[in-house]
Design a protein around this nucleic acid. Structure first.
Lengths: 136, 136
DNA sequence: CACTATCCCTATTGATTTAGTAGAGATTGT
DNA sequence: ACAATCTCTACTAAATCAATAGGGATAGTG
């Protein structure tokens, strides 16, 4: 099962992507926007920073920004940096090994095809289709 | 990460597939063949039975057999019966939901293409290619 | 019938991971 | 100096995982 930590990280990066160009976002802002426990998010953002996805500005007026354009960050990048590999590539060469590898490739291919720019677009479309239309 | 329980289950079914037609295999035999803790395997085989993959014969001369031909049992069947879904299909329709679904499909497709008859074949080939050849 | 090898069921345990929380420190703009 | 921010280490409660334990039920055999 995909961990909450990873889900939170994805949401946080999405929030930062949406905010890109508008200065840094504080942990609290991200936490509020995405309903993530702030103290937990703090640790997650530190991880993301260590992995080169975000940069931080300290002190007053500080916060987090994306280290590169949303277009250049893929879901798969975030996931694989936070989750360990989902199967153990042990030294034993049993029958299953090659299948785990193939499954891993299939999974990776899907999440690597989605960058955060396209996620923003997807989100916009979703919002559009879910917003009730009260006009007459 | 794929659980040991699931790995053990796959190995157990593989052992039963190899033994098919030769009467029931005891828990202990399977445990020995696949290096699985016998008491743990016991619980796993009960699960497999409940899910319709194996049948058991009680009493002396008893043991486990596959409930259907190896050809008709796929890796994916075993996995999805033992592991919960690897992502939580919640009611929230966020941007990620459709991607998790796609990833799930990709994964399922891989493991559903492999049945235990073909695993036996693969294993034979592996053995062949790994057996040192001492002839001169 | 007694015996023994087997599966069957419930409960318990120890280790690890997950999902946070707490408290104090360092940095920066005003 | 002050306040708002990030930074770091440590701690904890709950859940899950990987078994283990102790009987019970069943069936073949002499």
């Amino acid at each position: 099962m995909i961990s909450k930590k990873c889900l939170y990280a994805l949401k946080a990066v999405l929030a930062l992507a949406r905010h890109q160009g508008a200065g840094p976002m504080t942990i609290q802002q991200i936490a509020d926007a995405q309903e993530i426990p702030a103290r937990f998010l703090e640790a997650i953002l530190r991880d993301l920073k260590q992995n080169g996805f975000t940069e931080s500005i300290r002190g007053k007026e500080g916060g987090y920004i994306l280290a590169r354009p949303a277009r250049d960050i893929r879901m798969g990048d975030i996931i694989s940096s936070l989750e360990g590999p989902w199967y153990a590539p042990g030294p034993e060469t049993d029958v299953f090994a090659s299948i785990w590898e193939e499954a891993d490739r299939a999974l990776t291919e899907v999440v690597n095809q989605v960058d955060f720019q396209s996620l923003l677009k997807r989100e916009d479309k979703l919002r559009f289709s879910h917003t009730p239309d009260y006009s007459i």
